[in-house]
């Protein structure tokens, strides 16, 4: 594990570079294939509406993967992530057009956990269409 961020260089409140992740129907079809999650609520509008959803929604695990990229891009080596958890609070609704939706992710260092292990807790905020789509989204990261 070779994090490119030093424990000594961060403090509580340090912000990670924010990112935006576009998501279209094509993105979801591709993620379905790669992950093996073929639930029709992620690609079949008729089915999604029949089960009471407003439209096709993104895989929760896709949103979790994108939110995690803000942390792994920051530390460089994804092996620095020792813990990562989220709660799925609202679905990311993905309309059937070229634009799709956008997941906006910000994150900041919320706590320095252990001076010896050089671990910090990063709190992540993920929104789409001005709604929080993840809750309790946190990663524990071991820094250099």
């Amino acid at each position: 594990m070779t994090a490119k961020v030093s424990y000594d260089d961060v403090e509580v409140g340090t912000e990670l570079p924010a990112q935006e992740f576009p998501v279209t129907r094509a993105t979801l079809v591709r993620y379905a294939g790669a992950s093996g999650d073929f639930n029709p609520i992620h690609w079949n509008e008729k089915f999604a509406k029949e089960v009471g959803l407003p439209d096709v929604i993104a895989h929760g695990m896709f949103t979790m993967a994108e939110a995690g990229r803000v942390v792994t891009d920051w530390v460089g080596d994804p092996a620095a992530v020792v813990e990562y958890g989220v709660r799925f609070t609202k679905p990311v609704v993905v309309p059937n057009d070229e634009k799709g939706s956008v997941i906006e992710v910000t994150a900041k260092v919320a706590a320095k956990l252990d001076d010896e292990a050089r671990t910090v807790r990063v709190d992540i905020t993920a929104t789409s269409a001005d709604q929080k789509v993840l809750g309790r989204s946190r990663a524990v990261v071991r820094l250099a």
Partner: peptide, 20 residues
Amino acid sequence: TPAQDTPAAAQEAPAAEDAR
């Protein structure tokens, strides 16, 4: 209850066969 009656929490179904 069905999806439309649930609070926003957890409208994510995990696997294809599980939602049918």
